[in-house]
Design a protein around this nucleic acid. Structure first.
Lengths: 357, 357
DNA sequence: GCCGCCTTCTGTAGCGATAAAGATGCAGAC
DNA sequence: GTCTGCATCTTTATCGCTACAGAAGGCGGC
């Protein structure tokens, strides 16, 4: 059976196509009686309402907003940070009767994915440069919620000052007397196992090099590196952001003669995995090894993890609001963060072996 | 600045519009040299690729698939069942380079939400009758993953036999000697607090009445009611599916002279909340009150909750595959479930007060 | 030299709807 | 009697792209 269109209904009822359109979209533009007759007739003819594509083409609006993640899309539901953000984001969208398009953005052709998406705006949980640029090229409003590059994105953003947060963590550990510290950063693209990063790479990071977007959380790491410039620091790269990655990375960090007194992880998830590994080795987190995370996900509190708290829900809410109202100002928002000190960080144990530098 | 279209590029390069279109979509239809010239020119002119809406209108495909939930959309990320399902669903979509549209479906006008969505198919975590009918009216393939009504949906589905599952739970509890049982069902629409349901309603449910879709999990409940026809059964309605709802409902169920020896909840989440309330009252789950859930979410194992295990990830995966291939058969799939007995259900304590019937 | 066939490109004709502006008719004002 | 104003409906002109059918040219086969 051929599809029923407004034209068909118009013909049968004996009115113009425009009047049928108005019956659906602008009730005040025609008499209630006629409107009812049109709607009834439409139902009887099996018309299922104005076609979304045609309406979109003509009006330019889709009423749905895209979201991109740096991680795999399916990962979004298992990561607490992403869950909380998405909850807040979708809540706002829901209130405005808008839908959320979870964009699958294959690294191979991120631009194509964004190009083909029927959306009125794009939010990035991370700063996906290719995706957001494509969206802006299409003339769509964009918002990102973290800087994974070392420069400001051209569109809007809702972030915390990750550099300052890194500095805060550094200051906290130094105050506790830690002088031998390891830093565990995540890397979604990393194929093999965890690895220590060479002096060269460390210096490159210290200098703020972008490294082709491979290592994320650049601001955060920069703050840490600058804040810890005067202590012995080793850098390790873990796999994608998961508890398992943190656990795996622990082997290389802990099972060495020069075990660090404190370990900083660029996310709570990694930190919790790392803490798991400590427990497995009979090491007391806090007393034996201080551990710090980032984000303050719900599990962090239970685990007594010292971390940087950031207003994730506010990020999601504001991101949604910026997309829904492209004229809203300001579009570059820095939210406050806060160091939450829990039991996972403690002063360096006094009777420890002397620090060899 | 006016938007750049294929026509503009065609004019500048000196070819037909169709050739420009082919340059983007069918590289084999023109010489590599010309194609490159067109693409270069397009980039230089600030063309961001074929317009999604126009392409959608013309070709009829959007490459994205909708998902509806019975609960509020934002709720999807906090519910473990939904998370697991979504993870599997999006994983498949991701592999096929398709996107997922989370549909916000206001009860007030579910049909409009589906009508206006640019999608190639619709999956329902629950059986949203209005939404899925609207989708089918549009000629889109649909899949639902549970029956919330007491009859088969017209489209495809991937379910477990919830009626049998209910019977299994009933048999298990009877085998353990339970004769005074309460049933706690969820109800997302419920505005007020939890409430006991009258005899009339109970009979209506027992008879399989639909009750205008208010109470969900009809099959599940029917199986329980039929399986427990010969024991003393009280029915309670909780609010939306959350731990808090289960906890709140406990007051009415437990704080009575005729406390039940076993409580069945229509979801693990409710059951866990109920168990929390038991602990608060100093009641040992299992020894003092047996508790049963449904779904076997990850937390259930930790809590020692007896429950019905169902292959949630398979549901999500299959739902996605059915949408992606509308010709795939069969489209009505019943997956196996399994009663998982843990410590939360135990035989009725012997020295208890005699059962008054 | 004629034919068929392949490669490469073009022209036409919408897809189904909506924005914007125009026509119609009738009520009341002056 | 004419004019203004409003409610109601119609006309026109696309939105940007792609399906489909063909045309132009080259090239080998017999």
């Amino acid at each position: 059976m051929p599809r029923v269109t407004m034209r068909d209904i118009a013909e049968v009822v004996g009115v113009s196509v425009m009047t049928v359109s108005n019956a659906f979209n602008r009730p005040d533009q025609l008499s209630p009686g006629l409107r009812q007759r049109i709607l009834d007739r439409a139902t009887k003819m099996g018309y299922s309402g104005p076609d979304a594509a045609a309406r979109h083409l003509r009006s330019g609006r889709t009423n749905s907003y895209g979201v991109v993640f740096s991680e795999k899309l399916s990962y979004a539901f298992s990561d607490p940070f992403a869950s909380v953000w998405l909850t807040a984001f979708t809540q706002v969208m829901e209130q405005h009767h808008a839908s959320v398009l979870l964009l699958s953005v294959p690294a191979s052709d991120a631009a194509a994915a964004v190009r083909d998406a029927s959306i009125d705006g794009l939010a990035g949980l991370c700063q996906d440069v290719v995706a957001t640029r494509q969206a802006r090229d299409r003339g769509l409003p964009t918002v990102v919620c973290s800087f994974d590059e070392d420069r400001e994105p051209p569109g809007g953003y809702v972030i915390i000052d990750d550099y300052e947060a890194g500095m805060d963590v550094a200051a906290h550990l130094k105050r506790l007397g830690h002088k031998r510290i390891s830093l565990l950063v995540e890397d979604a693209q990393l194929a093999g196992g965890p690895a220590q990063v060479s002096e060269t790479d460390l210096r490159a990071l210290r200098g703020g090099a972008r490294r082709a977007g491979r290592v994320e959380r650049v601001q955060r790491i920069s703050g840490l590196l600058d804040g810890l410039a005067d202590v012995s620091l080793k850098l390790f790269v873990a796999g994608p952001n998961s508890r398992a990655s943190g656990r795996r990375a622990a082997a290389e960090i802990l099972d060495t003669s020069q075990r660090p007194t404190a370990v900083i992880c660029t996310s709570d998830i990694l930190a919790l995995g790392f803490a798991d590994a400590c427990a497995e080795r009979g090491l007391a987190v806090g007393a034996d090894v201080s551990v710090v995370g980032f984000d303050d996900i719900p599990e962090a509190a239970q685990a007594g993890l010292t971390t940087i708290h950031q207003p994730v829900a506010d990020k999601g809410r504001l991101a949604a609001e910026l997309l829904l109202d492209p004229d809203r100002e300001p579009r570059r928002i820095v939210l406050p963060h806060r160091l939450v000190v829990r039991s996972s960080t403690q002063p360096v144990p006094q009777p420890a072996r002397p620090i060899t530098d």
